[in-house]
Simulated scan of single mutants.
Amino acid sequence: MAKVELYTTGWCPFCVRAKQLLNSKNIPYHDTDVDREPDQRAVMMQRGGARTVPQIFIDDRPIGGCDELYALERAGELDSLLGANSGESGTK
């Protein structure tokens, strides 16, 4: 199973949508709230080159945000990136 990491905030509707998609596929992920851990925003920006949330990484590869995650799903590419069909949903 791929390692999935998200950088999010608690108030972002796009963050919620990204997590809903991953949860619906039973994909475990690590969620870093950059409002609660402000130093992590700089890490997120260095890793992915963007300052907006969510920022999503699959096996350390920057995927982008919610729109890019859903585009991968629509194209039928997300499952192969995730190496998924099983797992437990959740965070940290």
Rank of each mutant, 00 (worst) to 15 (best):
A42Y: 09
Y70A: 04
V34R: 00
R36W: 03
A2S: 15
Y7V: 02
V53P: 00
I27N: 02
A42S: 12
E68D: 11
R51Y: 11
K19S: 10
C66A: 05
I27V: 15
R74V: 10
P13F: 06
W11T: 15
P28C: 03
A75S: 15
P38H: 04
A71F: 04
G87M: 01
T32S: 06
D60Q: 14
P28I: 06
A75C: 10
R36M: 11
L72M: 14
G83N: 14
Y29L: 13
Q40K: 11
P62W: 05
S86W: 13
R36F: 11
T91K: 09
C12V: 04
D60T: 05
L6P: 04
P54L: 07
V34M: 01
Q55V: 05
V16M: 13
P13Q: 08
P13G: 11
R41M: 10
R41Y: 12
V34A: 01
T8A: 02
N85L: 10
F14A: 10
L72A: 06
D59P: 04
P54M: 02
G65Y: 01
R51M: 07
K25E: 12
H30N: 13
Q55H: 07
R61K: 15
P62L: 05
Q55R: 13
D39A: 05
D33K: 01
S86M: 15
V4R: 00
D67G: 08
G49N: 04
D33F: 04
V43M: 12
L81W: 14
T32A: 01
G83Y: 08
R47K: 15
S89R: 09
Q46P: 11
A42E: 12
G83P: 00
P28H: 11
L82V: 02
W11P: 08
P62M: 05
K19A: 15
D67T: 13
A50C: 09
E68N: 11
E5G: 07
T32D: 03
R17N: 11
S89N: 07
E68I: 08
L81S: 04
S89P: 12
S80V: 14
V4D: 01
D35Q: 12
P28W: 11
A42K: 13
E5P: 05
M45Y: 07
H30M: 13
D35I: 08
Y29V: 09
A71K: 13
Q46A: 14
A84C: 11
V43S: 05
C15L: 06
R41W: 07
H30P: 05
S86Q: 12
Q46L: 09
V53Y: 00
D31S: 13
R74E: 14
E68C: 07
K25T: 03
G49W: 05
C15Y: 03
A50M: 08
R61L: 15
A71P: 00
E5T: 14
R36N: 10
R17S: 14
C66L: 07
L6D: 05
G87E: 01
A18H: 01
K25L: 14
V4M: 02
